[in-house]
Design a protein around this nucleic acid. Structure first.
Lengths: 223, 223
DNA sequence: CTAAAATTGTAACATTGGGTACAATTCTAA
DNA sequence: TTAGAATTGTACCCAATGTTACAATTTTAG
């Protein structure tokens, strides 16, 4: 029954027995939902913890200016809106709807708090989750702060190179995808890539990118 | 001694006695620092909790592209890098240095974790802090996602109006300040404001802004 | 192998905003 | 009150990117 949570971010480290025991002492309910159902509206209070057990959810952030309403998908055994259960403005940041049938485990905030103080491992896990969100967003902001397309390319490539020792980067993204990720138009991205090629900074082929002049690439980011 | 923490975000809700008691059972040290001292480097592991007791710290994020290294200041009784003590990449995101003499309370992560599970109120407080950071960053991202200056102005004004019922917004910011906040140049901001005035959307005087056409203002954000 | 689809290359033009410089206005302190 | 400082208005030019449209190339499916 709760097996799905066995190695979930929130319960990692607990054995199956401990998990069962935990759920015996924590009030909760399991709710079924149908594909297409609207589970929560943006702005609605978050006073329950939602743990997805089965099915797929989708959060839509109506990101003004019409063009890009961001969609985030959620699969089991993820927790929904983890960073919005506590904190000064605990309201849903997105419209949450179901992409398929499924079921979700619901725990009242008070009970959830009790569970955290009862089981330190879960507490640490939860703090790790929320911290992770903050860190992710922090990185996102760094990226969003980059102003030119050149900078975004440079940052993206340098990130990808951290691990690999040689100066070839494998991506399985099309330029179209990348443009989308960067929030720029595809022709603009292509234009900039070609410029950088002309300047001898890199060679961009379909599957991989070869950095020819690391120094110049770094200079773009002012380092 | 620990009086400074009495109503701090982390310890709010505890009495002076409880606070004293808590610190008796939690290993910690108090470290003095001198003005100018470098307390932590960006990238360094965070394996201790730092609680500022006295003095002022400053975090500098070397925000590439040279021009804008962001500075965040920290005053007692704030916690340092709260969202980076846990989570997948617990490294300092900034260079941390002292702007004045002062002292800071240091708790090893392990001890800190113990304290959280020992005292549920502190645990909830800490989770509130980290969640708050995530929420703040999330809002920041929404703002950073706005592309044009018009959009930023519209968003800014609509935010400020939520509370007030009439269509006048008081700001005590100069355009110079605002331009800085928006990350745009001052003449560009002024230019856009004047455009919006010409289009009958608003009237911008030194102390306050009058919205003349709410509908148009909303349209800018695509709603 | 081949036609359709996807991806990438390219170009002309429009729009937005930065850089800079200076003028006009308003505020502030002596 | 008045000079200097701060703020706001304005103009010109330029760089970066978006918009649109279409061509060239590569991949994929049948």
């Amino acid at each position: 029954m709760y097996r799905i949570f066995l190695n979930s971010p929130l319960f990692r480290g607990l054995t199956m027995e401990e998990l069962d025991e935990l759920f015996q002492s924590v009030n909760h309910q399991i709710k079924q939902f149908r594909s297409g159902e609207l589970l929560a509206m943006a702005g609605e209070d978050v006073d329950k913890a939602f743990l997805l057990m089965q099915g797929r959810l989708q959060g839509e952030m109506v990101d003004f200016s019409g063009n890009s309403l961001k969609i985030e998908e959620l699969d089991p055994p993820q927790m929904v809106a983890a960073a919005f259960l506590y904190g000064p403005q605990n309201k849903f940041p997105v419209f949450l709807s179901a992409k398929s049938d499924g079921r979700i485990l619901v725990i009242q905030k008070k009970e959830f708090t009790g569970m955290l103080s009862m089981e330190p491992r879960v507490m640490v896990n939860y703090i790790n989750i929320v911290s992770g969100k903050a860190q992710f967003l922090s990185g996102k902001i760094t990226f969003l702060s980059l102003k030119t397309i050149r900078e975004k390319i440079a940052y993206f490539l340098l990130q990808r190179m951290k691990s690999g020792m040689n100066n070839t980067i494998n991506i399985d993204q099309t330029q179209t995808n990348l443009a989308d990720l960067f929030g720029v138009t595809r022709p603009s991205l292509t234009r900039t890539i070609l410029e950088m090629e002309k300047q001898g900074i890199l060679t961009w082929s379909r599957e991989s990118i070869l950095i020819n002049n690391m120094k110049k690439l770094n200079t773009i980011l002012g380092r």
